[in-house]
Amino acid sequence: MSSKATFVYAASALALFAALPAPAQAASKYGCFKVTVPSLNLRARPYSSAEVVGVAHRGEILEKRKMFCTPRGFWCAIRKGSLEGYADKSNMVKIDCP
């Protein structure tokens, strides 16, 4: 097979793959939380003094990223869209993921 034919074949396969719909994002395997306070700081590390990397608002759903929260159970690793951080567990309730 010539290099031109190989390139055309590879380009065709790539175009076909790119045309496929993206798979739906699977629900978190560890569950989800619903924010219960007006606003909740999402932090870079599981400490109240850590940098705030985002904010979640009452009613928003956050995915749980790890099976267990911190050893004392105050902070949980979460995901809000593409943002990952930690949130204070006392400001959320555990729910089934939508």
Rank of each mutant, 00 (worst) to 15 (best):
S2W: 03
W75L: 03
W75A: 11
M1A: 14
P21T: 06
H57F: 08
C32W: 03
A5V: 12
A24I: 08
I61W: 00
A5R: 14
A26S: 10
A13H: 02
F33I: 04
N41M: 11
N41W: 05
P38T: 06
N91A: 12
R65C: 12
V93P: 07
G31E: 04
K89W: 02
G54E: 07
C76R: 01
I61Q: 14
P23V: 11
R72N: 15
N41E: 12
G31M: 08
A13Q: 13
K29F: 00
A56K: 06
G54T: 02
L40P: 02
S3I: 11
G73H: 09
Q25P: 09
A77V: 04
H57M: 02
T36C: 02
L42F: 05
A18W: 11
L40A: 07
A19T: 06
G54R: 06
P23M: 04
E51R: 14
S3N: 13
S3Y: 05
Y86Q: 09
S28D: 06
F74S: 14
S39P: 00
L83P: 06
R72D: 15
K66R: 15
K64A: 12
V93H: 05
A24W: 00
P23H: 04
C76V: 08
M1I: 08
G85F: 00
L40G: 05
L83Y: 00
T70H: 02
R65D: 10
A44I: 05
S12F: 08
A77G: 09
P98R: 08
P46Q: 09
A13K: 14
P98V: 13
A44Y: 04
P23S: 07
V93C: 06
P21I: 07
G59M: 04
A44V: 08
K94M: 09
F74Q: 12
I95E: 01
I95S: 04
V35I: 05
V8Y: 08
C76S: 10
F33V: 03
V52S: 05
M92C: 13
G85R: 01
S12R: 12
A13L: 15
A15T: 08
L62W: 00
G31T: 09
F74V: 14
S2R: 11
K66I: 00
G73I: 14
I61T: 15
A22R: 11
S2H: 09
K34W: 00
Y30V: 01
G59Y: 02
F33W: 09
H57Q: 07
I95H: 03
F33K: 07
V35A: 11
A15F: 05
A18H: 04
A44M: 13
K34F: 00
Y86A: 09
T36P: 00
F68H: 15
D96V: 11
A5S: 13
